[in-house]
Design a protein around this nucleic acid. Structure first.
Lengths: 236, 236
DNA sequence: GTAGACCGAATTGTATACAATTTGTAGAGT
DNA sequence: ACTCTACAAATTGTATACAATTCGGTCTAC
């Protein structure tokens, strides 16, 4: 159920925006199997709203790549096959390597970002020293780490693109983080990246980031087959 | 005026999509000054349609970054300041360097793409040997060159992101190409890139691409001040 | 029994009507 | 003259109504 009081402060009544957020969340959490048809009236009923905001939301989700538009036949949840995951990871590598390279070369642009990096260091050191978290929380922290770096690099446009990539990858990272606790390894890698940045070791930072992303990619790869199988069994 | 018969084949009656395309085109060609307010009813009148497709179009344009949404106050054409251009170019560099690196390392993925590269070579050789074109045509060919490379690299997601970046940059490249004929230099650079790719010279390809983009960036930079000044004079 | 035409339910595409919010302005009060 | 309030116009947000298209099934012709 969508309600106006769910909406973030400063953004007044806007059903469309909250529908976008909710559907994204649901798709990421595999609430719908791939290729599942999203009918307007059905969404209207579940969200208790009229078709106007639903239609606008679907159009936005389509441009973001979460659903696919069939001409005159509505929308379906997009099928993310293994090849597409690979593509998403490649784009992510391209963007994040660039971001971390900038960051290592010229440092964070302002004091706020410098503080953010210190906070990150504390967070991941704490995690390394035993404070355990739930899988979903870990996935969130991991995403936050990478996005904070991109933000500190000072390029809002790059951050925006990275966000849409990561949102779509979240589809599979949820599965991965759900199955295995890889906290230790992730902590070490993140701390290594931060160390290289503060040491202005550009190639080191790039290498550490590449390793971090590659490991995540491999983990997701092994998790994907199960996920797709599960999704298939749901569809039938 | 928007009409259904303007629509591309295979995409049946869809006013919203054609409004998106038309508005994008208009914004890129500086039909509206930055921060110009886009009222729904006004767009309805100029396009001779109702508010539904206009609203959906505006939402899409907002997620693509062409217009900015003010809560409960409609939309305005986004102001692209110099800093944002710089950001767009940085993302473009990150993506295109990655693409050209893949291409130089492992070559085009299939025969079609290999053909495309040959066609590109012919096109730019012809241009170098005198066949002159209008500024707008040149800009189009240049964009096509870069997008063909990304396509040949075989990553559709990367291509999609590159497209949205390039579309927004087109705002300023139009101005630049309009003022000076830089065909010769561009030709040489593009041919150099192609040569490095076929020679599997990865660092060479990266360097040539970096040089090509940097030159474009510099040209645009020098052109921007005039553009902004002109836009300002339009606004007042 | 099969192919093809035709009809109707379901669904999307578009237009309009109504509600809620914002903003500018006129007017009263100080 | 200045500020604050209240109201009206304009504009967005939402809901509903109508048109056009698609798709499945049935019925007929062969």
């Amino acid at each position: 159920m969508i309600r106006n009081d769910q909406i973030v402060e400063g953004e007044p009544s806007n059903l469309s925006a909250s529908i976008v957020a909710t559907l994204k969340e649901q798709i990421i959490h595999w609430h719908y199997p791939p290729e599942h048809r999203l009918t307007e009236v059905e969404l209207c009923k579940t969200f208790n709203v009229s078709r106007s905001p639903v239609r606008e939301a679907l159009r936005v989700l389509a441009t973001d790549g979460f659903v696919k538009k069939l001409p005159n036949r509505g929308y379906v949840v997009r099928q993310h096959n293994i090849h597409e995951i690979e593509e998403l990871y490649e784009v992510r590598v391209a963007l994040e390597l660039y971001a971390v390279e900038c960051l290592a070369r010229r440092g964070p642009l302002n004091e706020n970002d410098k503080e953010d990096l210190v906070k990150l260091k504390r967070t991941w050191t704490d995690l390394l020293n035993g404070s355990s978290k739930k899988a979903e929380e870990l996935a969130r922290l991991d995403t936050q780490f990478h996005e904070t770096l991109a933000h500190a690099a000072g390029n809002k446009t790059l951050l925006r693109h990275l966000r849409t990539i990561n949102e779509r990858l979240m589809l599979f990272r949820m599965i991965d983080f759900d199955k295995v606790d890889r906290a230790k390894s992730t902590c070490h890698q993140h701390l290594k990246i931060l160390k290289c940045i503060t040491a202005k070791d550009t190639p080191g930072a790039r290498a550490a980031m590449q390793q971090n992303i590659d490991e995540g990619r491999n983990n997701v790869h092994t998790a994907i087959k199960d996920a797709l199988a599960r999704a298939y069994s749901m569809k039938t």
